[in-house]
């Protein structure tokens, strides 16, 4: 496999922060892989995602390098990299119709005219498996459920046909059933289009279900990186072991018995 991005010795310190948010992070992101980035809250996952997208706040101290051997040059945000966040409300404009927002990327980056962009928006809305795409294209964000809004955000993120999709805690605000459906959708889109996915989550189980490789962050450092199954089966660091131990599913011994 060839590298889409090569990150070396990346360090990030926010303005006025006592400690760096990222220190000495080096890894390659392979073209076409699903890379999960996991860790406790505050471990630097979102900072890593924002550094990759080029969306860190101004006056943040950044050192190290991010090279893009898999692209023709520096990535253009929205074009080469699509992003989706936990709260789709933050990326969707409340007063614009869904169709316009989804078509925006295609209009701006693929040079489609308004009519073609509208048609493309309807196609994308269908692709993220929303029912009645024409009707949803005419709706406003508040008329949709949280899970539907997240599907719209995904449609908008892939509109310009990016090489890399960065998804930061995209299912954390959703109920478990909707969460599973959104994760399935992401995997399907990424595999169908040969996209690369960086999937940021605090939930190791979610990561293990979809990722080729998992990167574990702790206190701003990349502490472990490896194939998903191996990393779960044989954690090499305390941070990974703690995440494995914190997992709860239907086979976990209950904390209480049958009756009080």
């Amino acid at each position: 496999m060839s590298a889409l991005a090569a990150i070396s010795n990346l360090a990030v310190a926010y303005r006025n922060a006592a400690l760096p948010a990222l220190s000495d992070v080096s890894l390659e992101i392979e073209a076409g892989e699903i890379l999960a980035v996991i860790g406790e809250s505050g471990s630097g996952k979102s900072t890593f995602a924002r550094a990759l997208i080029g969306l860190l706040p101004q006056r943040t101290a950044i050192s190290g390098r991010i090279d893009w051997p898999g692209l023709d040059g520096a990535p253009r945000a929205g074009r080469d990299i699509g992003c989706v966040f936990q709260d789709p409300g933050s990326s969707l404009n409340p007063v614009l119709r869904i169709g316009e927002q989804v078509g925006e990327g295609a209009r701006r980056h693929l040079g489609l005219g308004r009519r073609a962009a509208d048609a493309e928006a309807v196609r994308l809305i269908g692709r993220v498996r929303l029912p009645e795409p024409e009707r949803i294209a005419r709706a406003f964000p508040h008329q949709l459920s949280g899970g539907q809004r997240q599907r719209v955000a995904i449609a908008a993120a892939i509109a310009a046909r990016p090489r890399l999709l960065v998804a930061d805690e995209v299912t954390s605000a959703l109920d478990v059933v909707v969460q599973a459906a959104i994760v399935d959708l992401l995997v399907e889109l990424v595999r169908a289009d040969g996209m690369t996915l960086v999937f940021v989550t605090h939930d190791l189980a979610l990561a293990s279900g979809i990722a080729d490789r998992i990167a574990v962050m702790a206190a701003g450092r990349l502490v472990e990186l490896g194939p998903a199954a191996e990393l779960v089966a044989a954690p090499k660091t305390a941070a990974t072991a703690a995440l494995v131990a914190a997992h709860i599913d239907l086979a976990t011994p209950p904390l209480v018995g049958d009756a009080p």
Partner: peptide, 14 residues
């Protein structure tokens, strides 16, 4: 049944 199916299991790459 849906709630049971949706519980993420800890597993390796499918």
């Amino acid at each position: 049944g849906r709630l049971i199916d949706a519980v993420p299991r800890l597993k390796g790459k499918p």
